[in-house]
Amino acid sequence: MQRTYLALLGLTAAAAAPTAWAASVFSSQPLDQARFAVLAQPVGRSDWKLLVLEQIKPEPLCWEKRSDGLVDPSLNRFDFSGICSRYLDSNGYSLRVGNEDLASRYRLRLEQQGNSVALLAMTPSQPTELLVGRGSLRQRDRNAFVAIDLEPGWSLERRAYGSQTLSHVYFANGTPLSQLIAKANRSGADRTPATAAAPMKPLKPLPPQPGSGPIALQVIPYKP
């Protein structure tokens, strides 16, 4: 009876502080950044979807940069099982700041700002958004993605449980969260109309391609 009570007490404590529990359970391991691409996929007329691609084997290439600066998701043209891995939503990626797992508090979103696409981390309890990355938007093409470059201090890391690595990627920053929020607030206060994002210029449309359509993204389980 006493053992059952203590077990229930432990579960109650974990439920009361899920973020602290996650931070104590999960750690992270560094990754080779060159093996990953952080991309913004156009959805509809103005929305964007965040995805991360990983090159597991050297060939064939999972993505290729086009001459116009956009990224071609070439993995859609072959069976990429065991060659490429994709992280499509919050099940595949989340935020880790100052060695704290923030998956239960923060979410990542893409926002078009002028002629760029910003990757932001946000939470309902904090009005300040954190700038995680940004990509240059030269034109909008439904068959190509915008490459997102992470801001200084940010990198991709692998979630780990003890000595076991998991199929989950962190957008990680070692700086404590309070310092990142303070820095973001200072950056916002320093912005003036002259330095704010310029109004979006008309994007150069591409001619329609025969048989073009949305790119199907089949979910493939991660295999290390």
Rank of each mutant, 00 (worst) to 15 (best):
Y170L: 03
N99V: 07
R96P: 10
L50Y: 00
V132R: 02
S74V: 09
L217C: 06
V38S: 03
V219Q: 15
K201L: 14
K183H: 12
E100H: 08
R186T: 13
Y161H: 15
N91G: 04
Y170K: 02
A121M: 03
Y222K: 13
R77L: 08
N115T: 01
G174Q: 14
T123A: 10
P210A: 00
V25I: 11
T4P: 01
R109C: 05
Y93S: 03
P210Y: 05
A17F: 14
D141C: 05
L9N: 06
A198R: 14
A14T: 03
L130A: 02
L50K: 06
S24M: 08
V52W: 08
N185D: 12
S24A: 13
I220G: 07
G44P: 07
V25G: 01
S81I: 10
V97L: 00
Y93F: 11
Q29G: 12
L50M: 04
A22M: 08
T123P: 07
V169I: 15
V117Y: 11
Q218H: 13
L206V: 14
V169N: 09
L150M: 09
Q113T: 12
L108T: 05
P42I: 00
P199F: 04
S125M: 11
D79F: 01
L53E: 12
P214Q: 09
A216I: 14
A182G: 02
S74N: 07
V132S: 00
A216S: 14
F80P: 00
S116V: 01
L61W: 08
A40G: 06
K49H: 15
Q126W: 01
T128D: 05
G114E: 07
H168T: 10
T12L: 15
S46I: 05
P221W: 11
R159K: 14
W48N: 10
P30L: 13
